[in-house]
């Protein structure tokens, strides 16, 4: 155990000494990784914020169920009890044809029209607020209601929600694609940096192999270095992201005030920060692992 600790502290000392010797280069790598990581992170933060904002908006999707004109009281009561029990519905409002007719006659805007009509043309109607706001869920509910006995027409005013959701979905996909591409770039950047280091340490690696170093022994300092690049890069990214959003919020706050809203972009929470760090560390490790293994393969022809 002591032996193991000794060896690892030795490697860390070696790696840290190398980093200290190349301060500028290390800072540059951290900055590059930081910039690469902060692009998807910022996009994510924006989408996450808009998503939350969308959830808070009062303008919730509404489904209107219009009954057939000849639907009798029993059918309507039947449907009413069915809808009341339905698990996908959060709020139900029933407007009978009589009350709608009365409202029409009472309203100053429509009393002319009502006066010209001989009898009530309006159907019984239900106005529903669904629990799930996702367009697919609303679609499904709409189709389900359409098949009910005595229902003439179901109108879902979900277009607004649909559009917002599809934009958000698109944004999420963009975050994934961007993260994927930049993750790949990260592996490449770190891998290449490590490859250059391996080149300068070629002799040492060769000699070490000749006198009995295992691949693990040779890999270790490079893996630690790659991991440190990932860690430093992710910390730089968090610094950038928090800095940029804070600056951004100064203008957003002004703008929001004009609209009487107190909306500001929330900074990434600790889970997101931890996630970014973990990803960067893992990718740094991966990049250096690939680079060292390729060099080792070249050194071991057997």
């Amino acid at each position: 155990m002591k032996h193991w600790i000794n060896q690892h502290t030795l490697v860390w000392r070696l790696v840290l000494a190398r980093i200290c010797r190349n301060k500028l280069a290390t800072l540059l790598i951290w900055a590059v990784i930081g910039i690469a990581l902060c692009l998807p992170a910022i996009l994510y933060v924006i989408i996450d914020n808009v998503n939350q904002l969308a959830g808070e908006v009062k303008n919730e999707p509404q489904i209107s169920v219009f009954m057939k004109l000849d639907a009798d009281k029993a059918t309507v009561a039947n449907i009413k009890s069915l809808l009341e029990k339905h698990s996908g519905i959060s709020n139900l409002k029933f407007v009978s044809k009589d009350s709608a007719w009365k409202a029409m006659q009472d309203s100053a805007l429509t009393d002319n029209i009502a006066a010209n009509l001989k009898h009530n043309p309006l159907p019984d109607a239900f106005f529903i607020q669904p629990k799930a706001h996702a367009p697919s869920a609303i679609d499904q509910l709409q189709h389900e209601l359409q098949t009910l006995e005595g229902v003439e027409h179901v109108l879902a005013d979900a277009d607004w929600a649909k559009r917002l959701y599809s934009i958000l979905e698109l944004g999420k996909k963009a975050v994934w694609v961007l993260s994927g591409l930049l993750g790949f770039a990260l592996v490449t950047i770190i891998g290449n940096t490590i490859r250059l280091q391996i080149l300068t340490q070629r002799e040492e690696i060769e000699v070490s192999k000749l006198i009995g170093a295992t691949d693990g022994f040779i890999r270790r300092p490079f893996l630690y270095a790659g991991t440190l690049y990932g860690l430093g890069g992710s910390l730089a990214a968090l610094l950038f992201v928090n800095g940029i959003i804070t600056i951004f919020n100064l203008s957003v706050a002004d703008l929001a005030e004009l609209y009487g809203s107190s909306f500001i972009l929330a900074l990434p929470d600790w889970q997101i920060s931890l996630g970014i760090t973990a990803c960067a560390v893992a990718l740094g490790w991966l990049g250096s692992y690939i680079a060292v293994n390729r060099s080792l393969a070249r050194l071991n022809p057997h």
């Binding site: 002799e203 000749l210 006198i211 009995g212 691949d215």
Partner: peptide, 19 residues
Amino acid sequence: VPYMRRKFGLVFQDHKLLY
């Protein structure tokens, strides 16, 4: 192979020192 090589002390013809 690495563990095998550790049994040996090797002096190379070209020394292979780390400069």
